[in-house]
Design a protein around this nucleic acid. Structure first.
Lengths: 148, 148
DNA sequence: CCACTTATTGCGACTGAGTCTCGATTACTG
DNA sequence: CAGTAATCGAGACTCAGTCGCAATAAGTGG
């Protein structure tokens, strides 16, 4: 999770204009705990009159993804979703019950990638690891509480 | 890569009917070296009169994915593609230049997943690792030759 | 070899995510 | 405070993927 001012100043720092739809979306994204889809964000924008239409939501998410503030995620169902990322964590662990998500550090994954490079002869540039399972709360039966 | 008879007998073994669109698609898929999209397959079906329409292509790919003969892949661009898989290899390495793809074995990835589970408290059920880079041929400048 | 049952197909309409265009607006710059 | 260029809204559009239904054909039992 990332807070709204951080998102806003990242936009500013990268030379993007601070328009009111962008500020509003930054706020909406900051409150999200789990992963979210573009459509969920659009719904929230309509319900709470944030003043961001479909095109703007997608454009803003594109910009934020480019800045590394959110990351595109492909759920096992094939849906596209987004998560906010903390800079130090490069992989995401997604709860398959409640949708919460958290970052995870490398834990030697680069060594795995290296070994795979040696095995296959490929020169590996990027990799993507997505993990799915039950978050601690859902393991305790707490389940789908407290999510937006 | 997997050859056509293997695909056909897998379908048969699972109790699916061996229809002519399915045989034709099995053949088309077997010749693929890299990843391919449903639409590319559909195009080939139309060009070579394989007698499989859009719905059939998608339905067949669904079945084959369920049988583990092909696997859905999410390219970094967000496109959905498929690759044929060899049973022992559970991850895919995709060439970002020519699209060729090959399988890779675990190389300790399950230990990484385990460590991440411990770090985050999640009970990890499934993971997905996709690696992107340059295949040996493209590193040698051979590039985009010989692909369908 | 024939008739029956039922999975599968084709067709075409439909859905829903994401994109594009373009005129209007508005944030920054000087 | 005016100018300019980025951004926005609205809505048409595209494209992947799905669905429903009538027609077809694959496997089966006689």
């Amino acid at each position: 999770m990332v807070d709204a001012p951080t998102i806003v100043s990242a936009l500013e720092g990268a030379g993007y204009r601070l328009t009111s739809p962008r500020r509003a979306l930054a706020g909406a994204i900051a409150t999200r705990r789990g992963h979210f889809t573009a459509d969920e964000l659009l719904d929230e924008s309509r319900r709470r009159r944030l003043g961001a239409t479909r095109a703007t939501v997608f454009r803003t998410l594109d910009v934020l993804a480019e800045l590394g503030i959110v990351e595109r995620l492909d759920l096992p169902t094939g849906e596209h979703a987004f998560v906010t990322c903390e800079p130090a964590h490069h992989h995401h662990v997604v709860c398959s019950s409640c949708g919460r998500s958290t970052g995870a550090s490398e834990h030697g994954l680069d060594r795995v990638a290296e070994a795979i490079g040696r095995e296959t002869g490929y020169r590996i540039d990027t990799h993507r690891l997505e993990l799915f399972g039950l978050c601690p709360e859902c393991q305790n039966g707490a389940g789908l509480v407290g999510l937006p």
